[in-house]
Amino acid sequence: MLDFNTVYIMAYRQIKRFFRARSRVIGSILNPVMWLIFFGLGWSSLFKAPMAKIMFYGLDYMSYLAPGVLMMTIFMSSFIGGVTVIWDKEFGYLKEVLVAPVSRTASIIGRALGETLTAMLQGVAILIAVLLIAPLLNPLGAPLALAVGLLVALSFTSMGITIASRMKSMEGFHMLVNLIMLPLVFLSGAIYPIDNMPLWMKGIAYVNPLTYGVDLARWLLTGVSQMDPVFDLTLLLVLTAVMIAIASYAFNKATIE
């Protein structure tokens, strides 16, 4: 039986911490807005030609990019949120958690849930911005797109926790961000389609869980998708469950030695 008391209080902590770090709140919302404006508007003025529309499955570039930026925001925020377990290691709080008479699975699920909720808050903010900037999107798909975001957030928070549980120090943190986060964004179809990529890049894109989240969200918001939405959803659900299981295993193994 899952210890909901622990899940609740660990989620409470993450949410408190999030709102305490004002710069993080502002930055996490400004960053994707910058992408939308400077990247999105910049390229979409180039992609005005009718040929370009074919590249983006008949969508104007802004509509193509918008669901991608939504998922990217949720992905980045949740992944970094998960990796912050390394901060707890560095600043000692992890010991307080490890010595408490509660299930570690419950405390890690609570933590993942807290990070997920904060990522979702950013998701809502971006979704509103996106609906304003790209008016061709279907607003009815928005709540469901957020539900997809929830799965993406849960799975990548868990991935972050897994990686942080195995890391010894904070030194690897920035390398991790560059080496894992950026490629996962580029190889997800969020910014450009994956069809015409070199084979090896395509390979990575197809094992990247974010690809399916982006595809599903795009289908919900524009009606266009590259894969069967049912297939996307099934894969995403399975991946999320697996990621949570791995994270709780890794965290259970975490010791201070």
């Binding site: 209080i9 409470y12 408190k16 600043f91 000692g92 709080y93």
Partner: peptide
């Protein structure tokens, strides 16, 4: 070495501990 959450207040650190220990 200290094991408090530096981003939270003293009261919040106490509260989280107390709820965790039921």
């Amino acid at each position: 070495d200290s094991t408090v959450d530096r981003e939270l207040t003293g009261w919040e650190n106490m509260w989280i501990h107390g709820v965790t220990y039921k």
